[in-house]
Nucleic acid binder design. Sequence first.
DNA 1: GACGCGAATGGAAGCGCTTCCATTGACAAG
DNA 2: CTTGTCAATGGAAGCGCTTCCATTCGCGTC
Lengths: 338, 338
Amino acid sequence: MVTIADVAAHAGVGAGTVSRVLNDSPRVSERTRARVLAAIEVLDYRPNPLAQGLSRGRCQTLGVVVPFFTHASAVERLRGVVAALDGSRYDLVLFNVESPVHRDEHFATLTRRDRADGLLVMSLPPPARSLARLVESRVPIVLLDSAGTGVPSVVTDDVEGGRLATRHLIDLGHRHIAFIGDEPDNPLGFTSSTARERGYHETMAAAGLVVGPGDVRHGPHVRNVARGMAEDLLVGDDRPTAVFAASDTQALGVLEAARAAGLDVPGDLSVVGFDDIEVSSYAGLTTVRQPLFESGRIATELLLESLAAVDPLGESELRLDLELVVRQTTAGPLEAAA
Amino acid sequence: MVTIADVAAHAGVGAGTVSRVLNDSPRVSERTRARVLAAIEVLDYRPNPLAQGLSRGRCQTLGVVVPFFTHASAVERLRGVVAALDGSRYDLVLFNVESPVHRDEHFATLTRRDRADGLLVMSLPPPARSLARLVESRVPIVLLDSAGTGVPSVVTDDVEGGRLATRHLIDLGHRHIAFIGDEPDNPLGFTSSTARERGYHETMAAAGLVVGPGDVRHGPHVRNVARGMAEDLLVGDDRPTAVFAASDTQALGVLEAARAAGLDVPGDLSVVGFDDIEVSSYAGLTTVRQPLFESGRIATELLLESLAAVDPLGESELRLDLELVVRQTTAGPLEAAA
DNA sequence: GACGCGAATGGAAGCGCTTCCATTGACAAG
DNA sequence: CTTGTCAATGGAAGCGCTTCCATTCGCGTC
């Protein structure tokens, strides 16, 4: 293994000078720089990142804490992260979270610059204590799709999204609109589904519409579960004429249930999702689009900025726009009169 | 920042002893061990991974080289990787590859244990020279979904998969069967599409069926592109009655094209995909299933094994089974006689 | 011609850990 | 009582880099 000493010897200079060349220090003469670069070339030398990290107290690594692939949207966001990181000198380390234990473990170790120089936390509200420790440790951090005190975050207005979806259905003439989403008190504390549900309730109330006791269903964020809930929802004569699902994944489950029940979409049932993940356009799903890829890119750029600054960025909130994308799963309810 | 020296001082022992406790060395008395553990607890000490890595010459990190999310299947495989890594002490670093330059850069730096202790290369045949250097450098490496000399690999028989799909269509009575897949000479050298195509050609020939000049289309691995190619393919009276797409992503594009052309699936057109990605069950797509998640898990376990061994594992090939999953996009062609 | 200044550079210290080697002390054997 | 052995332990060296400090050297200035 070629070390900096080998390069120094080969170039006839000191190790310090090689280091200066490596780090683009101006305090090296052109002649010397050229000689060192030549030696590096000849020996095919590459600095040991661990040694650099230990010495500098940084490790050229960005940690991404993500409830991995549980939501299809996370993948799309990750693509944005990767895109933003491309060309930077940072490696990307993935910290998968599937349980609170997982999460707390990671947050506990990640308070140190030797593990990651910066942290991107995706869709996961850090517990207050963890967050406080992270802020105190001065590791730059950006929250994506969740909010927290003292740190920058990139979010969308989920409540407003819920309103958009619900209003769309009401405008089409629906009166009996159901909601399918995540458990409000899920172990990892995801809040977006609940916020979207709030928008739904608000809008229903504002329109003077009743949300019956069976009209709201909660379950784990999985297509099959949503399908089961929808099948249950769609039996009987007083079944809803429209369903707002808190995510496209769940909306697809609703579509499956409708298909299984022999209901025509959008003839017998309208369905609105949320996110606009990749398959939604294939499924022709009407949905509330949030810029997933963009959000990953923007959050990462924010993090890189924070990394370059002397102090970590303070609290701020960047709110990305939502947009209703009308496709083929929504239409007016069949007129009983007709 | 708490260091090993702080712990040693607090416990009234030497740094070496603390290190021995950390690394579960048997050469520490129970009493001392207890005292050290107590000090660690009190001070909330966590070893600096960079320092450990530098000292040990390993970095507790696994590199995954992956053409990132270009194929939906890569995500599914990654899930398997993450699952296998969960509970191990290894971090996962993602090396995204989107161009040959990318790829060669990564392979060049990854020949060293200080960057990653082991390497999982996904769906990407390493250039012979890169691979030779990697083998020589003795960094444990496992190829997933590609093969190479001197290293273990986890693969499926893509040719056989192509045969399975094609035979299924022939058995249903189809005579005019088209193929849609990737460019044979794509920049990153992906071979699976081409292998699947070979199985298609073989089976067609064996059945005495003709593959017309316009019956095979190639294009980038993107749904919209596949859709465009399929739209082109499906005009005219002599259009095929069935299409075998080299991946589910492309098969979905074919389904879209059929829908746009007003063709009933499977009435007017049968479609078979490959992979069985998550959405395929939603789409009711008949496909050749390969165990994506499993493949990621198995390859990772193999890599962990290689890491634990004294020498990296030599050449071997683990072939995973394929399975035809018949759903709703295939049926016999409409009888002209009927 | 002596002096001062700044640019260029060599080299040592230090980052936090592991590991090897030397030391200590307890205990068994003679 | 002496010697040898072995377990337990302290501490220094070393991993490969960065950075600070001291040194050297060239050159302009008075």
